[in-house]
Design a protein around this nucleic acid. Structure first.
Lengths: 157, 157
DNA sequence: TTTTTATTGTTCCATTTGGAACAACATGCG
DNA sequence: CGCATGTTGTTCCAAATGGAACAATAAAAA
Protein backbone atom coordinates (compact mmCIF):
# COMPACT_ATOMS: atom_id res chain seq x y z
CA UNK A 1 0.00 0.00 0.00
CA UNK A 2 1.38 3.34 -1.06
CA UNK A 3 1.39 6.53 0.87
CA UNK A 4 -1.49 8.53 -0.52
CA UNK A 5 -2.23 11.08 2.07
CA UNK A 6 -4.02 13.76 3.94
CA UNK A 7 -5.62 15.84 1.15
CA UNK A 8 -2.42 17.37 0.13
CA UNK A 9 -1.30 19.15 3.14
CA UNK A 10 2.04 17.49 2.80
CA UNK A 11 3.17 19.36 -0.29
CA UNK A 12 4.76 21.65 2.28
CA UNK A 13 7.52 19.06 2.63
CA UNK A 14 8.70 20.16 -0.80
CA UNK A 15 8.09 23.88 -0.77
CA UNK A 16 9.34 24.80 2.67
CA UNK A 17 12.54 26.85 2.74
CA UNK A 18 14.25 24.51 5.20
CA UNK A 19 13.17 21.06 4.00
CA UNK A 20 15.49 18.89 6.06
CA UNK A 21 14.91 20.84 9.25
CA UNK A 22 11.18 20.64 8.71
CA UNK A 23 11.13 16.91 8.05
CA UNK A 24 13.45 16.15 10.92
CA UNK A 25 11.32 18.03 13.42
CA UNK A 26 8.19 16.57 11.89
CA UNK A 27 9.53 13.06 12.32
CA UNK A 28 10.76 13.83 15.81
CA UNK A 29 7.29 15.01 16.76
CA UNK A 30 5.69 12.01 15.09
CA UNK A 31 7.81 9.65 17.13
CA UNK A 32 8.12 11.41 20.43
CA UNK A 33 4.73 12.98 21.08
CA UNK A 34 2.63 9.79 21.05
CA UNK A 35 5.25 7.81 22.96
CA UNK A 36 5.64 10.64 25.40
CA UNK A 37 1.90 10.85 25.99
CA UNK A 38 1.72 7.12 26.71
CA UNK A 39 4.69 7.24 29.06
CA UNK A 40 3.16 10.11 30.96
CA UNK A 41 -0.14 8.31 31.20
CA UNK A 42 1.29 4.95 32.22
CA UNK A 43 4.17 6.03 34.48
CA UNK A 44 3.56 9.67 35.29
CA UNK A 45 6.96 10.66 33.96
CA UNK A 46 7.72 14.00 32.35
CA UNK A 47 10.02 14.11 29.35
CA UNK A 48 13.05 15.38 31.23
CA UNK A 49 12.62 12.51 33.65
CA UNK A 50 12.84 9.65 31.23
CA UNK A 51 15.62 11.42 29.40
CA UNK A 52 17.49 11.45 32.66
CA UNK A 53 16.86 7.74 33.10
CA UNK A 54 17.97 7.06 29.57
CA UNK A 55 21.23 8.94 30.01
CA UNK A 56 22.02 7.24 33.29
CA UNK A 57 21.26 3.81 31.95
CA UNK A 58 24.03 4.34 29.41
CA UNK A 59 26.69 5.91 31.60
CA UNK A 60 27.72 4.67 35.00
CA UNK A 61 28.08 8.12 36.50
CA UNK A 62 27.01 11.52 35.24
CA UNK A 63 26.62 15.01 36.64
CA UNK A 64 23.41 16.95 36.06
CA UNK A 65 25.31 19.27 33.78
CA UNK A 66 26.46 16.40 31.61
CA UNK A 67 22.90 15.17 31.30
CA UNK A 68 21.87 18.65 30.22
CA UNK A 69 24.56 18.64 27.55
CA UNK A 70 23.73 15.18 26.28
CA UNK A 71 20.06 15.97 26.05
CA UNK A 72 20.28 19.63 25.03
CA UNK A 73 17.91 20.69 27.77
CA UNK A 74 18.29 23.54 30.26
CA UNK A 75 20.01 22.80 33.55
CA UNK A 76 17.06 23.71 35.71
CA UNK A 77 14.82 21.25 33.92
CA UNK A 78 17.29 18.48 34.65
CA UNK A 79 17.70 19.66 38.22
CA UNK A 80 14.00 19.26 38.83
CA UNK A 81 13.96 15.86 37.21
CA UNK A 82 16.83 14.74 39.44
CA UNK A 83 14.89 15.67 42.55
CA UNK A 84 11.78 13.84 41.54
CA UNK A 85 13.69 10.75 40.51
CA UNK A 86 15.63 10.77 43.76
CA UNK A 87 12.36 10.89 45.68
CA UNK A 88 11.04 7.97 43.68
CA UNK A 89 14.19 5.95 44.30
CA UNK A 90 15.20 5.69 40.67
CA UNK A 91 18.48 7.56 41.26
CA UNK A 92 21.36 7.80 43.68
CA UNK A 93 23.31 10.97 44.26
CA UNK A 94 26.69 11.44 45.92
CA UNK A 95 28.76 14.60 46.21
CA UNK A 96 31.89 14.59 44.08
CA UNK A 97 34.86 14.45 46.48
CA UNK A 98 37.06 16.37 44.04
CA UNK A 99 34.62 19.14 43.17
CA UNK A 100 32.24 20.45 45.78
CA UNK A 101 29.91 21.95 43.20
CA UNK A 102 28.87 18.86 41.38
CA UNK A 103 27.17 15.64 42.36
CA UNK A 104 27.62 12.21 40.86
CA UNK A 105 24.39 10.62 39.68
CA UNK A 106 23.76 6.92 39.25
CA UNK A 107 20.70 4.95 38.27
CA UNK A 108 19.34 2.41 40.73
CA UNK A 109 18.18 -1.04 39.74
CA UNK A 110 14.58 0.02 40.07
CA UNK A 111 15.35 2.98 37.82
CA UNK A 112 16.90 0.67 35.28
CA UNK A 113 13.88 -1.58 35.36
CA UNK A 114 11.65 1.41 34.68
CA UNK A 115 13.85 2.57 31.83
CA UNK A 116 13.63 -0.83 30.19
CA UNK A 117 9.87 -0.62 30.11
CA UNK A 118 9.88 2.95 28.84
CA UNK A 119 12.39 2.39 26.08
CA UNK A 120 10.02 -0.16 24.62
CA UNK A 121 7.47 2.57 24.04
CA UNK A 122 9.97 4.66 22.12
CA UNK A 123 11.49 1.94 20.03
CA UNK A 124 8.07 0.60 19.09
CA UNK A 125 6.94 4.02 17.96
CA UNK A 126 10.22 4.57 16.15
CA UNK A 127 9.70 1.39 14.17
CA UNK A 128 6.14 2.35 13.36
CA UNK A 129 7.13 5.75 12.04
CA UNK A 130 10.08 4.42 10.04
CA UNK A 131 8.10 1.36 9.01
CA UNK A 132 8.02 2.07 5.30
CA UNK A 133 11.79 2.15 4.88
CA UNK A 134 13.40 -1.10 3.76
CA UNK A 135 16.48 -2.49 5.48
CA UNK A 136 18.95 -0.70 3.22
CA UNK A 137 17.20 2.60 3.52
CA UNK A 138 16.92 2.27 7.24
CA UNK A 139 20.59 1.53 7.58
CA UNK A 140 21.53 4.40 5.33
CA UNK A 141 19.32 6.78 7.30
CA UNK A 142 20.87 5.64 10.55
CA UNK A 143 24.34 6.22 9.20
CA UNK A 144 23.57 9.72 7.94
CA UNK A 145 21.78 10.69 11.12
CA UNK A 146 24.70 9.57 13.20
CA UNK A 147 27.21 11.50 11.17
CA UNK A 148 25.11 14.65 11.38
CA UNK A 149 24.37 14.21 15.07
CA UNK A 150 28.03 13.87 15.95
CA UNK A 151 28.76 17.02 14.04
CA UNK A 152 25.89 18.82 15.78
CA UNK A 153 27.22 17.72 19.15
CA UNK A 154 30.44 19.58 18.43
CA UNK A 155 28.87 22.71 17.06
CA UNK A 156 28.03 24.76 20.12
CA UNK A 157 31.16 23.99 22.13
CA UNK B 1 38.74 18.41 10.61
CA UNK B 2 37.19 15.35 12.10
CA UNK B 3 34.52 15.25 14.73
CA UNK B 4 36.30 14.49 17.97
CA UNK B 5 33.92 15.52 20.61
CA UNK B 6 32.58 16.23 24.02
CA UNK B 7 34.55 13.76 26.20
CA UNK B 8 32.65 10.84 24.99
CA UNK B 9 29.20 11.61 25.95
CA UNK B 10 28.10 10.77 22.46
CA UNK B 11 28.68 7.05 22.72
CA UNK B 12 25.00 7.05 23.68
CA UNK B 13 24.19 7.44 19.99
CA UNK B 14 25.29 3.83 19.59
CA UNK B 15 24.04 2.20 22.74
CA UNK B 16 20.59 3.70 23.03
CA UNK B 17 17.71 1.29 22.44
CA UNK B 18 16.04 3.58 19.89
CA UNK B 19 18.98 4.95 17.90
CA UNK B 20 17.13 6.58 15.03
CA UNK B 21 14.53 8.16 17.27
CA UNK B 22 17.24 9.50 19.53
CA UNK B 23 19.30 10.97 16.73
CA UNK B 24 16.31 12.46 14.99
CA UNK B 25 15.16 14.23 18.13
CA UNK B 26 18.71 15.24 18.93
CA UNK B 27 19.11 16.81 15.52
CA UNK B 28 15.72 18.44 15.72
CA UNK B 29 16.72 20.01 19.01
CA UNK B 30 20.10 21.05 17.67
CA UNK B 31 18.46 22.86 14.77
CA UNK B 32 15.31 24.24 16.30
CA UNK B 33 16.29 25.37 19.81
CA UNK B 34 18.96 27.91 18.86
CA UNK B 35 16.96 29.20 15.90
CA UNK B 36 13.86 29.37 18.05
CA UNK B 37 15.67 31.31 20.78
CA UNK B 38 16.91 33.85 18.26
CA UNK B 39 13.50 34.24 16.66
CA UNK B 40 11.93 34.80 20.05
CA UNK B 41 14.56 37.35 20.97
CA UNK B 42 14.48 39.22 17.68
CA UNK B 43 10.77 39.10 16.84
CA UNK B 44 9.00 38.08 20.04
CA UNK B 45 7.36 35.12 18.32
CA UNK B 46 6.51 31.88 20.05
CA UNK B 47 7.04 28.62 18.20
CA UNK B 48 3.40 28.04 17.37
CA UNK B 49 3.30 31.51 15.87
CA UNK B 50 6.02 31.11 13.32
CA UNK B 51 4.77 27.64 12.52
CA UNK B 52 1.46 29.24 11.72
CA UNK B 53 3.18 31.77 9.47
CA UNK B 54 5.14 29.03 7.78
CA UNK B 55 2.03 26.98 7.03
CA UNK B 56 0.14 29.95 5.69
CA UNK B 57 2.99 31.05 3.50
CA UNK B 58 2.75 27.73 1.71
CA UNK B 59 -1.01 27.39 1.36
CA UNK B 60 -3.34 30.13 0.20
CA UNK B 61 -6.04 29.27 2.68
CA UNK B 62 -6.08 27.02 5.73
CA UNK B 63 -8.29 26.41 8.71
CA UNK B 64 -6.81 26.36 12.20
CA UNK B 65 -7.48 22.65 12.33
CA UNK B 66 -5.48 22.03 9.19
CA UNK B 67 -2.57 23.98 10.63
CA UNK B 68 -2.75 21.82 13.73
CA UNK B 69 -2.61 18.69 11.61
CA UNK B 70 0.25 19.90 9.46
CA UNK B 71 2.28 20.90 12.46
CA UNK B 72 1.25 18.14 14.86
CA UNK B 73 0.37 20.63 17.57
CA UNK B 74 -2.75 20.83 19.71
CA UNK B 75 -5.65 22.89 18.44
CA UNK B 76 -5.69 25.28 21.34
CA UNK B 77 -2.06 26.22 20.81
CA UNK B 78 -2.84 27.12 17.22
CA UNK B 79 -5.97 28.97 18.27
CA UNK B 80 -3.95 31.22 20.53
CA UNK B 81 -1.34 31.80 17.87
CA UNK B 82 -4.07 32.80 15.42
CA UNK B 83 -5.36 35.44 17.80
CA UNK B 84 -1.98 36.99 18.40
CA UNK B 85 -1.10 37.02 14.73
CA UNK B 86 -4.46 38.57 13.88
CA UNK B 87 -3.80 41.32 16.39
CA UNK B 88 -0.37 41.94 14.88
CA UNK B 89 -1.80 42.12 11.39
CA UNK B 90 0.09 39.13 10.06
CA UNK B 91 -3.11 37.20 9.31
CA UNK B 92 -6.59 37.62 7.88
CA UNK B 93 -9.55 35.57 8.97
CA UNK B 94 -12.90 35.11 7.25
CA UNK B 95 -15.74 32.77 8.20
CA UNK B 96 -16.21 29.89 5.81
CA UNK B 97 -19.54 30.44 4.03
CA UNK B 98 -20.08 26.69 3.60
CA UNK B 99 -19.24 25.63 7.15
CA UNK B 100 -20.09 27.90 10.03
CA UNK B 101 -17.66 26.17 12.34
CA UNK B 102 -14.46 26.94 10.58
CA UNK B 103 -12.65 30.07 9.52
CA UNK B 104 -10.44 30.57 6.51
CA UNK B 105 -7.01 31.91 7.38
CA UNK B 106 -4.71 33.79 5.03
CA UNK B 107 -1.34 35.38 5.53
CA UNK B 108 -1.03 39.11 4.89
CA UNK B 109 1.85 40.67 3.00
CA UNK B 110 3.37 41.90 6.23
CA UNK B 111 3.09 38.37 7.59
CA UNK B 112 4.83 37.03 4.55
CA UNK B 113 7.60 39.53 4.91
CA UNK B 114 8.11 38.44 8.50
CA UNK B 115 8.14 34.79 7.52
CA UNK B 116 10.83 35.43 4.95
CA UNK B 117 13.09 36.87 7.61
CA UNK B 118 12.36 34.06 10.04
CA UNK B 119 12.88 31.25 7.60
CA UNK B 120 16.40 32.53 7.09
CA UNK B 121 17.16 31.78 10.73
CA UNK B 122 16.00 28.21 10.34
CA UNK B 123 17.64 27.43 7.04
CA UNK B 124 20.94 28.89 8.21
CA UNK B 125 20.89 26.78 11.33
CA UNK B 126 19.84 23.73 9.33
CA UNK B 127 22.85 24.16 7.06
CA UNK B 128 25.15 24.58 10.03
CA UNK B 129 23.94 21.40 11.69
CA UNK B 130 24.05 19.37 8.49
CA UNK B 131 27.26 21.04 7.40
CA UNK B 132 29.45 17.97 7.48
CA UNK B 133 27.39 16.00 4.97
CA UNK B 134 28.54 16.17 1.38
CA UNK B 135 26.12 16.84 -1.46
CA UNK B 136 25.32 13.18 -2.08
CA UNK B 137 24.78 12.43 1.56
CA UNK B 138 22.63 15.48 2.00
CA UNK B 139 20.47 14.52 -0.93
CA UNK B 140 20.16 10.97 0.27
CA UNK B 141 19.18 12.13 3.73
CA UNK B 142 16.58 14.46 2.30
CA UNK B 143 15.08 11.67 0.25
CA UNK B 144 14.88 9.25 3.16
CA UNK B 145 13.45 11.85 5.49
CA UNK B 146 10.77 12.70 3.00
CA UNK B 147 9.75 9.12 2.49
CA UNK B 148 9.53 8.56 6.22
CA UNK B 149 7.74 11.83 6.88
CA UNK B 150 5.05 11.07 4.33
CA UNK B 151 4.51 7.70 5.93
CA UNK B 152 4.36 9.29 9.36
CA UNK B 153 1.79 11.78 8.12
CA UNK B 154 -0.54 8.90 7.25
CA UNK B 155 -0.02 6.94 10.42
CA UNK B 156 -2.41 8.53 12.84
CA UNK B 157 -5.22 9.27 10.42
C1' DT C 1 -38.29 15.23 10.60
C1' DT C 2 -35.80 14.50 15.33
C1' DT C 3 -31.94 12.53 17.66
C1' DT C 4 -27.38 11.22 18.01
C1' DT C 5 -22.63 11.66 16.89
C1' DA C 6 -18.61 14.29 15.09
C1' DT C 7 -16.00 18.45 14.22
C1' DT C 8 -14.28 23.25 14.86
C1' DG C 9 -12.56 26.75 17.53
C1' DT C 10 -12.30 28.52 22.11
C1' DT C 11 -11.70 29.07 27.22
C1' DC C 12 -10.27 27.20 31.61
C1' DC C 13 -6.94 25.44 34.51
C1' DA C 14 -3.13 22.94 36.20
C1' DT C 15 1.34 21.69 34.82
C1' DT C 16 5.60 22.29 32.47
C1' DT C 17 8.95 25.18 30.81
C1' DG C 18 13.13 27.99 30.51
C1' DG C 19 15.43 32.53 31.38
C1' DA C 20 17.55 35.09 35.06
C1' DA C 21 19.44 35.65 39.38
C1' DC C 22 21.63 33.35 43.11
C1' DA C 23 24.86 30.90 46.48
C1' DA C 24 28.49 27.72 46.76
C1' DC C 25 32.55 26.22 45.04
C1' DA C 26 36.56 26.22 41.69
C1' DT C 27 40.01 28.24 38.78
C1' DG C 28 43.03 31.75 36.83
C1' DC C 29 45.73 35.86 37.36
C1' DG C 30 47.74 39.78 39.53
C1' DC D 1 47.95 35.33 49.16
C1' DG D 2 43.49 38.27 47.30
C1' DC D 3 40.47 39.26 43.57
C1' DA D 4 38.22 38.44 39.36
C1' DT D 5 36.05 35.12 36.45
C1' DG D 6 33.80 30.72 35.45
C1' DT D 7 31.03 26.67 36.69
C1' DT D 8 27.47 23.83 39.08
C1' DG D 9 23.10 23.19 40.87
C1' DT D 10 19.09 25.52 42.64
C1' DT D 11 15.09 28.69 43.24
C1' DC D 12 12.03 32.22 41.47
C1' DC D 13 8.85 33.80 38.35
C1' DA D 14 6.56 34.76 34.23
C1' DA D 15 5.23 32.51 30.17
C1' DA D 16 4.04 28.65 27.28
C1' DT D 17 1.82 24.38 27.08
C1' DG D 18 -1.66 20.83 26.48
C1' DG D 19 -5.66 18.15 28.31
C1' DA D 20 -10.50 18.64 29.20
C1' DA D 21 -14.76 20.69 28.87
C1' DC D 22 -17.61 23.73 26.19
C1' DA D 23 -20.78 26.08 22.68
C1' DA D 24 -21.78 26.30 17.91
C1' DT D 25 -22.32 24.06 13.81
C1' DA D 26 -22.48 20.06 10.71
C1' DA D 27 -23.30 15.34 9.34
C1' DA D 28 -25.25 10.83 10.11
C1' DA D 29 -28.73 7.79 11.94
C1' DA D 30 -33.21 6.70 13.25
Amino acid sequence: MTDVNTPDLMQIFDTIEYPEAYRITYLANAIVFPAYADIKKDFGLVRAEYILLACLSHFDVLTAQEVARISRRPRNTISRAVHRMLDEGYLDRAPDPHDGRQARLRITSSGRKLHDKISGYLSRRQDEVLGNLNADERQSLTHLLKKAALHAANLDN
